[in-house]
Amino acid sequence: MQTGLPDNELIPLVLKGDQQAYKVLVDRYQSYIFTLAFRLMQSREDAEEVAQDVFVKAYRSLADFKGGSKFSTWLYTIAHNTGITYLRKKKQKMVAIDDESTFTQLENQESDFKANQVEDKSRKDMVNRAIEMLSPDDAQIITLFYRGDQSLDEIAAIMGLETNTVKVRLFRARQKLKEKMEKFFSEEVSNLQTV
């Protein structure tokens, strides 16, 4: 019944105590939040824990959402901050944008994949696997821009960066993604026109 309602109509219902309305929001955004968390954590277990934490935090502070931004932008901001905090707590090092050693490590992991599975993979899977080979920051920007439907300004707000920085990072992330695809999925990419 409520599944068709837009976010801004569901939120007042949740604030009035309708938890089923919140379930609609959870169902609507769980894949996005989980994907963002997974890009950052690179572990399904951690990503699930973070994603659950994000929805609980969002529920508890829902009264503070005043509609100044899209609900998704607000939720992704909580997801980004929760993920970063979780990583810090686990004392995992965030992979820097130009951390080539990590890329090499990831690329080595990918070589097995390339040898065994690439033939069975669709174009979509190819891009997904290539995104997993990016640094968490780059993967998050690509995901927010292309799947999260967030503008450069909104991504800047989510990640606490300047819009121009996001623009530059998005450009570099696309370049890297293209390089990965050309390197590991050359057959599929050859079907596309090369730049």
Partner: peptide, 20 residues
């Protein structure tokens, strides 16, 4: 167009139940 086609990762089946 290809970047827009990417699949989203799916959490476990029990995810939304756990959240609720």
């Amino acid at each position: 167009a290809l970047f827009r086609e990417t699949n989203l990762e799916e959490p476990s089946m029990r995810f939304s139940k756990n959240v609720m």
